[in-house]
Nucleic acid binder design. Structure first.
Lengths: 217, 217
DNA sequence: ACCTGAACACCGTTCAAGT
DNA sequence: ACCTGAACACCGTTCAAGT
C-alpha cells in the first residue's frame, strides 16, 4: 500500500484522460471483472470474453491491454501476491517479539489463502503457466519471501531460532505454512484436523510444531 | 500393486472380449491417452476430444465410459493417488526403524511429486474440481493418509515422536512435505534453496526440521 | 491510440441414429 | 451395449477496418 516508488501501480499518478470510448482505464476494469469471475466461478470460469462483457466492451478489446489470457491471469496473480506480502508485513509489524512475528506471518499466510482460495491457487498453480516470466509476479513474490527471511533473521538474532543458513530455515517454514494453506484451499482437511476449526487455529498449531523444529537444540 | 482384494483394478481379471469395435477396454485406452497428454502438455492440454483421437474413436465415444471431462480427470487423479500411496507404503516398509520410515515417506512423497508434476497438481488442484465426490479418489487418498498415520503411531510407540493426537501430528507432517512438494512442482524453488539440489535432498532437510519439531520435548 | 465485427480453429456436450 | 455424425454453444485469437 505505502510503496517504495519501485514500480507496480505505474501510470496511476497521471490523470486519466476520461474514457474516450468507455473507460479511462479499461485495464483496471478488466482486472476487476476477472477477479469477480475468479471468486464466483473458480479459475476455470475466468475467460477473456466474459471479462470483456462485464466491462462492456467487445471481445477483442482486452487484447489492447493484455497480450493473451495468461497475461491477464498473471496480473491477477501479481495482485494477489502483493496483497499477501502486505498482510504478512503488517502481521509481522504488529508483534513485538521476533518469534511472535514469525508465528503471525504463518497465520496471516494461511488466513489469506483460506479467504481467497481461488486467488491463492492462481498465485501458485498452473493456470497462469509461465507467470514467473512476468516481472510483477516475480517482484510481489520476492517481497513476500523477503518478509519471511527478515523475520527469520530477527529470530536468529534474538536467539529464538538456531543459526545456520536462513534460506534453509525459510524453506522449512514456508513449506509447512504453504502446505497447510494448500490443503485448506483444496478442501483436503474437511472432516480431519480442522473440522469445525478455522484456518487460523490450524495455522497456530502447525507453526507451533514448526517453531519447535527451528528452536536452538 | 499387490492389492488387498478391495476394489481399484476391477474388471481386470475378466478376459476382455477382444474389441468389438476397436478396443476391449476403451476406458483404459482413454485413461492412458489422457495421461500422456497430461504429461506432455500439462493439465490444460488434456481434452476429451484429443484423448478420443489418440484412442482412435469418435469424439463422442468417451461419454460411454466417463460422464464428463471431470470424471476422466478424477479417474486420473485416483490413479496418481493410488501410486503415491503405494510408494509411501513401500518406502515405509523398506526401513527398519519408525523414524526412518517417517523420513522415507516424506522423501517418497516429494520425489513422486517432482517426477510427475502435472499428475501431482491434478491430484490436489482444482482441475478436477469436485474430485472428492469420486469414491476412487477418496479411497486412494485415504490409503495414503493411513500410511502416514500408521507410521506416526509407530514413532510414538517407539518414543521417537511425542504423544498426543496423531491426527494433529499428521497435519503438521503432511503440511510440511506437501508444501515442499507444491513449491517444487510449481517451480517456486529454482534459484533458491534447492538450486542444483534435487527434490529428495530438500525433502530430507525439511523432514529433519519436522522430526525435530515432533520430537518429545 | 483504442475499439469493433467477422472469422477460424478448437472444445465440451447432446441427440438422433446406426450395428 | 457400444459407437458415429451432425449440431449447438462457447472459447482464445487474428485480421481488416473504423474513429
Amino acid at each position: 500500500m505505502s510503496g517504495r516508488g519501485t514500480r507496480g501501480g505505474a501510470r496511476r499518478g497521471v490523470a486519466k484522460r476520461a474514457g474516450k470510448y468507455h473507460h479511462g482505464d479499461l485495464r483496471r476494469a478488466l482486472l476487476e471483472a476477472a477477479r469477480r469471475l475468479l471468486e464466483r466461478e473458480g479459475p476455470l470460469g475466468v475467460c477473456l470474453r466474459a471479462a470483456a462483457r462485464r466491462a462492456g466492451v467487445s471481445q477483442t478489446a482486452p487484447y489492447r491491454h493484455f497480450a493473451d489470457k495468461e497475461a491477464l491471469l498473471a496480473a491477477l496473480a501479481a495482485e494477489g501476491l502483493g496483497e499477501l506480502a502486505d498482510r504478512m508485513a503488517a502481521a509481522s509489524r504488529a508483534e513485538s517479539s521476533p518469534p511472535a512475528a514469525l508465528r503471525a506471518i504463518g497465520v496471516a499466510y494461511a488466513t489469506t489463502a483460506a479467504q481467497n482460495p481461488h486467488l491463492f491457487r492462481l498465485m501458485f498453480g498452473p493456470e497462469a503457466a509461465d507467470k514467473e516470466r512476468y516481472p510483477a509476479v516475480r517482484e510481489a513474490g520476492a517481497r513476500a519471501y523477503q518478509v519471511l527471511l527478515d523475520t527469520i533473521g530477527a529470530c536468529q538474532q534474538a536467539g529464538a531460532v538456531r543459526g545456520g543458513d536462513p534460506e534453509d530455515l525459510a524453506l522449512a517454514a514456508w513449506s509447512a505454512v504453504h502446505g497447510l494453506s494448500c490443503l485448506i484451499v483444496d478442501g483436503r482437511l474437511t472432516g480431519k484436523a480442522i473440522a469445525g476449526g478455522d484456518a487460523g487455529s490450524a495455522a497456530v498449531r502447525v507453526t507451533s510444531e514448526l517453531m519447535a523444529g527451528l528452536a536452538p537444540r
